[in-house]
Design a protein around this nucleic acid. Structure first.
Length: 554
RNA sequence: GCGCCCAUAGCUCAGCUGGAUAGAGCGUCUGUCUACGGAACAGAAGGCCGGGGGUUCGAAUCCCUCUGGGCGCACCA
């Protein structure tokens, strides 16, 4: 019995009680699925719900009385062995071993599908993240969004959403000219130009451009710049894409800002928004009246000199997403961009969308390393690909994915460098590797999930306290995934995997799968193998959502 | 000045949108190996949940306020 099944059963009991006139409640007061929790204290049963405390007021009774009334009905749910009313009106539920144990088999049979749900089915989501300027390599400042965004996309897909992961390439602004100047300047050995990019990678890019265009230094600057701009940009973008791939981050679309300009989408966007009545002219510039939608000041779209602003491209880009049929556009931005929330939402509203529904801006706090802020302009960058080869993809992804985005994160490279279980990724991965090792060992000893072609599974045998605990955490996994998708918080998955890993290690310590030499193989051994394999499956499914590998051996 | 975010064990951080005695890892201390992988397990110590008010059966969680940090307020991108 999973917590989901239990919560639905409780909900049904409530409805029955109302229908029977035992409780004076409106049907709308009864939740479809009652929240059940794993009590912290084991003496409080397998599951607990505070539904009686929540409904006592609308029902016009006291919580204790309502709980007592409900307990009689809950006791009749199949698989429930005991109901206790505790404290101010908590209902503590104990499930019998057979009902709890069936889950092990169900998980093995569901395989990779265990934990997926359809809560977001039918939603077409555009998820934009990273979108680092193609003027330099990805560095630690981008790393968090890459890990987080990819995991959010995966979690959303696990909940049934149709997600397009998108990278917006800012290849049209003045930073591209600065970029080209920087490369050119290095090529001529002139050093870093005023306000230019200083990193060593600029020199590397210069070498690559030189290989493709051996005569580039013979050209005048005016002639060379466009060539360099095109070639260096292409190299840099390839580098970014290769790094993302190495990091296990998958994008469906790389969207070029320049193409928006080339296609006339900017002027088009201005015209469309003007049609909606939100565009006005002032001082020679063209403005969007974003203050109508909660922004603190109106924004210029076309400057007095006729050049479009970055904001205008943002608007055109948003319209592109809208035109491509995405009902929800999610932006993942760093805290240094939080001032953009209002203007982005204003674009959505001006375009006729509902800013509460069609656009969502997620803000993540910045990652710092040893207190030092790193920027590619300052030149003291830590590149993502160096981080990966240094610490490993799995450790970096996991350590970034296990924290919620809104808390500032300080990474200590010296700490991460240690390959100890100060980094919980090893704890979780080891639990998976250990369970696979146990399965290999069982196979070698002749333990099989079936005997003579028939499945050998007796759920009632999984009655040890550690089995009860492990099963309950495996059973909670789907609701954790659903919650992670709903709240866009994949760290919940990581945290839950750590709980499962701990429960697995304790179970492994207490219960043998393979019998000792000389002992017979029984259905107890076979049934435990089911539970072992179910745990492997859940750990692997969860790690996959985080973009972390589930090793067979370590 | 205005706005967003944060403050929980010595350290890094959780806390399932208001529930029972606030948790985990690391660090410290004490135990468990002639058993499937010890990268494990059991236990101890460690807390005015930044301060102060409020809301109610009940607050780390919601509201107000103060303090202390991070970030942002362009016809830059």
């Amino acid at each position: 019995m999973t917590p989901e099944e239990l919560s639905l059963a409780i909900s049904a009991c409530l409805k029955d009680a109302v229908a029977a006139g035992e409780i004076a409640l409106a049907a709308t007061d009864i939740p479809e699925a009652v929240r059940v929790e794993r009590p912290k204290n084991r003496e409080h049963g397998d599951w607990a719900t505070s539904i009686a405390l929540q409904l006592a007021k609308p029902a016009g009774t006291n919580p204790r009385q309502l709980a007592t009334l409900l307990s009689a009905r809950l006791a009749s749910i199949a698989g429930v062995s005991a109901i206790d009313v505790a404290g101010p009106g908590f209902l503590n539920i104990t499930v019998d071993a057979a009902a709890a144990g069936t889950l092990a088999k169900a998980i093995v049979e569901a395989g990779p599908a265990y934990g997926t749900n359809t809560a977001l089915a039918g939603r077409t989501v555009n998820m934009e993240f990273v979108s680092a300027n193609p003027t330099g390599p990805l560095h630690i400042g981008h790393t968090r969004w890459a890990a987080l965004g990819d995991s959010i996309a995966r979690v959303l897909r696990a909940s049934g959403a149709d997600v397009t992961a998108e990278y917006y390439i800012n290849d049209a602004g003045s930073q591209m000219d600065v970029f080209a100047h920087s490369v050119l300047s290095r090529l001529h050995g002139r050093g870093v130009p005023e306000g230019g990019y200083p990193g060593e990678y600029i020199a590397d890019l210069g070498h690559k451009v030189l290989t493709q265009h051996p005569d580039i230094r013979e050209l005048t600057d005016v002639a060379a710049l466009p060539v360099i701009r095109g070639a260096a940009y292409k190299e840099q973008l390839h580098d970014i894409q290769a790094t993302l791939a190495e990091f296990g981050v998958e994008f469906d679309v790389f969207f070029s800002e320049q193409e928006l300009h080339d296609a006339g989408a900017i002027a088009d966007a201005v015209a469309r928004l003007r049609e909606q009545g939100h565009v006005f002219d002032d001082g020679g510039a063209v403005w969007l009246r974003t203050t109508d939608f909660g922004d603190d000041k109106d924004r210029v779209m076309i400057r007095a000199n006729g050049e479009p602003t970055y904001f205008a491209a943002d608007a055109a880009y948003y319209l592109s997403k809208k035109d491509r049929g995405f009902t929800e556009k999610i932006y993942l931005l760093g805290a240094d961009h939080h001032g953009y929330i209002n203007r982005l939402k204003a674009i959505a509203a001006a375009a006729g969308d509902d800013p509460e529904v069609n656009i969502e801006v997620l803000i993540g706090q910045l990652v710092s390393v040893n207190g030092a802020k790193l920027s590619k302009r300052a030149g003291n960058i830590i590149e993502l690909k160096d981080l990966i080869s240094w610490l490993g993809k799995d450790a970096v992804r996991y350590s970034l994915a296990r924290f919620p985005a809104d808390s500032p994160l300080t990474l200590d490279p010296e700490l991460l460098k240690k390959h100890s279980n100060e980094n919980p990724v090893f704890y979780v991965q080891y639990a998976h590797a250990r369970s696979r090792g146990a399965a290999r060992n069982a196979e070698a000893a002749g333990v099989d999930r079936s005997v003579e072609g028939k499945e050998a599974f007796d759920a009632a045998l999984l009655d040890h306290a550690t089995e009860n605990e492990l099963l309950s955490h495996l059973g909670s996994y789907p609701s954790i995934v659903a919650k992670a998708a709903e709240l866009r918080e994949p760290h919940r998955v990581a945290r839950h995997l750590e709980v499962i890993a701990g429960a697995y290690h304790r179970w492994y310590d207490a219960c043998r799968i393979t019998p000792l030499g000389g002992e017979d193989i029984t259905d107890l051994n076979r049934t435990r193998l089911w539970l072992n394999d179910a745990t492997s499956q859940v750990l692997a499914n969860g790690l996959d959502l985080l973009g972390v590998s589930a090793p067979e051996r370590m």
